[in-house]
């Protein structure tokens, strides 16, 4: 456990010049109980198993990984939609890990979440005006000029027609609904937004519209983001720093250029080389093909969790869990045999 804390300090030291972190996560753990095993003994899905990172004001941290790696669970714990099993979440120096009602309400005006599915995350019986104005109403905020005026400003901000105030969600397309969700998350002028796969349900052309919108908002409002996605190209486009997760742990974290151009962890490298790239027509040289599937998080492999699919694995990988430490390439990676070659020359 001390190892992970060290890693945080390393990460902190590296960025000390840029001021206090807005959000700090230390050794965050979430285990979900499940029935199983012989005699119905109690087991746990170790969804998130010791995750530490920081987000500074106005920056985006991208969380990438395959399904089941714990990225969404992490996001939900950050905004406290899930109660962490253990660990610590600090927001602006305040411990919010187990915040209760009053504190949580204040917190949620600073911290918002955007969901993946623009169909199930909006109440179909409410008008857009009600949906976007709800955060103001819940928090008893009466903006100058009234709620309606503020909502219309927000709709305009996200590129929707303010006259559509009285329409219902079903009258909008998927991309427009996602904009409604974004407008709602901005209503309380948050400092940080957790975006959980905000574009993966959308068509490619609409995806780009929403990504551009989020980038403009970040620039104009100095928002910080935790951007959760499985699409590596989208994350690269949106995040200054990137954390790669595998089976509930961060295997590598660092600035975008290092993660994408000089990945240290074999998993990062394999993930990058698996992305079909339209710029590499029919090319297949130097591609890494991982074998098999991700193991179950109920009973993850001993030592390094990636070792069962890793082509570099040796005996030590099964016995000793590698800690996050600074690698030659400059990022923090948890690997006994890190890569050190440049993957992409820019």
């Amino acid at each position: 456990m001390t190892e992970t804390v060290d890693a945080v300090q390393l990460d902190t030291g590296w960025k000390a010049a840029q001021g206090e972190p807005l959000l700090k996560v230390e050794n965050l753990i979430k285990h979900f109980p499940v029935r199983g095993g012989m005699f119905g003994s109690k087991q746990h899905v170790r969804a998130v198993d010791g995750v530490s990172f920081e987000v500074r004001p106005g920056e985006t941290l991208g969380l990438v990984g395959e399904s089941g790696c714990g990225k969404s669970t992490t996001g939900r714990m950050l905004v406290r939609l899930l109660e962490p099993t253990s660990g610590k979440i600090t927001f602006e120096g305040q411990d919010i890990t187990h915040a209760r009602r009053g504190q949580l309400q204040r917190l949620r005006s600073d911290m918002q979440i955007i969901f993946q599915d623009p169909y199930s995350s909006l109440n179909p019986r409410h008008t857009v005006g009600t949906i976007v104005g709800m955060p103001l109403k819940v928090n008893n905020i009466n903006p100058p000029g009234g709620v309606k005026k503020r909502v219309q400003e927000l709709l305009e901000l996200v590129g929707l027609n303010p006259e559509h105030y009285n329409r219902f969600p079903h009258e909008f397309s998927g991309g427009q609904r996602q904009r409604i969700g974004i407008a709602r998350s901005l209503a309380l002028r948050p400092k940080i937004i957790v975006a959980d796969e905000p574009v993966s349900a959308l068509d490619v052309s609409i995806q780009a519209q929403v990504i551009n919108l989020l980038r403009d908002l970040q620039r104009d409002l100095n928002l910080a983001f935790v951007f959760i996605a499985h699409d590596l190209a989208v994350v690269r486009h949106f995040s200054q720093r990137v954390a790669v997760m595998y089976l509930g742990k961060i295997v590598e974290i660092g600035p975008r250029e290092q993660i994408y151009n000089r990945p240290a962890h074999p998993y990062t490298k394999a993930l990058l080389s698996a992305v079909p790239d339209a710029t590499r027509l029919g090319e297949s040289v130097g591609r890494i093909r991982l074998q098999g599937d991700v193991p179950t998080p109920i009973n993850p492999p001993s030592g390094c969790r990636f070792r069962t699919r890793c082509w570099k694995a040796q005996d030590i990988c099964a016995t000793q869990e590698p800690a996050l430490s600074v690698k030659e390439t400059g990022s923090l990676a948890a690997c006994h045999f890190p890569e050190n070659a440049v993957l992409i020359e820019n």
Partner: peptide, 25 residues
Amino acid sequence: WGLLASMPSLRGDPEADLLPIKGNP
């Protein structure tokens, strides 16, 4: 063109804006 320019890539300038297709299908 719209499809190609809408897709972020693993190469090139990550800060450059995408050129989405306006409107809806």
